[in-house]
Design a protein around this nucleic acid. Structure first.
Lengths: 207, 207
DNA sequence: ACACGCATACATACATGAATGTAAATGCCA
DNA sequence: TGGCATTTACATTCATGTATGTATGCGTGT
């Protein structure tokens, strides 16, 4: 029974993307065929090829439904640069990214990106994440530099080192948590670790 | 021209594994066929099927030629628990793992593991890394606990939090560096970040 | 209000290519 | 000469892309 209403067509498109998330998460991207996805959504491959050009197109459509955590951090930092100082801006942006990641769809999609796929067509997530990481590091670095200039950072830590510490901690926490979300709480334990880092490198807190 | 001497047969086995590293690294595991690997080594698929049962078997043989960095850290910690205190043991073990990772073969294989493969047969690297991460965290935690009991750790940081901080920093640094080895030096910049962390959480250094 | 026509939203069928596993053939060393 | 290392050839499976079929929603004219 083809040709539903326009709203129903959009619903099946979303259903196909939902199914893609499920199957990608379970079997990995390269091992799932479009047939798998279609059947999991209760349809056939024809529906997939109607809504999407091919597997890569579907994959990118799936990515478009979520926001990259590093992009979120970049946006948060550049948006509210006043707040209560650069260090607090960094800390809050990080915690905000953690909150976003705990949303089910975000969690699934980013787990797929980090642990369930290697390449997709010619645009691979490694390069994508690479650019994002580079941009994010630069924004964070400028923030730490500003904190340093305002005397908020302790002398023992150079802005570049603080940048690497924060950036690697974020990446490591996200990576580990997405691999095993039940092993610890990203918001609680992860947030605690981030808070501790900022407590350690903030001058006023240690005198 | 088949049937060289036994030593030459072993050499072709190694050549096949070398080729596998190259091609996996370039195209990703799922997108490389055994034909690709064989041709890159100057042979045919038959040679591959003689030395290895299938792709998964070859993959695991490739893994067996290197040591997991987290396993290295575990071994280092459990081996030389005397050294100059638990904190220094942790620090040196981490830096040692970084050194190991900069060896070409280690670098290639672990890049493949982190960024070029999703699943391989029924044994997937995610589960493998998961167990390792869990074990390593436990060993590190015990080490931090000992440091805490000996009064080496500052009061602001609980052993569990220190564990998560160190573990996530290691994971993040390795992850980022393997994705873009030219963006920074793991030994230098990464080591500096690790050193700074230990400097921040060590009591004697701040009074 | 109702029939008409067309574009839409799928399902089905088919052709192609690629990767796999295996069996047979072949040469080389001991 | 016989078993080892490797190639070649073949059958099978599987995913893809495309082409075609088809029924329905929806706008249009009257």
């Amino acid at each position: 029974m083809p040709r539903r209403t326009k709203a129903e067509a959009e619903a099946t498109r979303e259903a196909l993307l939902d199914a893609a998330e499920d199957v990608f998460l379970e079997k990995g991207v390269s091992r799932t065929s479009l047939e798998h996805i279609a059947r999991h959504a209760g349809m056939t491959r024809g529906a997939v090829y109607w809504h999407f050009k091919n597997k890569a197109d579907l994959f990118h459509a799936m990515l478009d439904r979520v926001k990259m955590p590093l992009q979120q951090i970049i946006d948060d930092i550049t948006a509210e640069r006043q707040a209560s100082g650069p260090l607090n801006t960094l800390r809050l942006a990080t915690l905000h990214a953690f909150e976003m990641l705990e949303r089910p769809r975000s969690c699934r999609v980013h787990t797929i990106l980090m642990h369930r796929c290697e390449f997709i067509s010619d645009i691979n997530p490694v390069e994508l994440q690479n650019r994002l990481a580079s941009d994010c590091r630069e924004v964070v670095r400028r923030c730490f530099q500003q904190a340093h200039d305002e005397g908020l950072l302790i002398d023992e830590i150079a802005p570049d080192v603080a940048t690497l510490m924060l950036h690697s901690m974020i990446g490591g926490l996200v990576h580990d948590w997405l691999r095993a979300p039940d092993s610890f709480s990203l918001r609680e334990s992860g947030g605690e670790a981030i808070d501790s880092l900022f407590q350690l490198i903030t001058r006023s807190a240690r005198s």
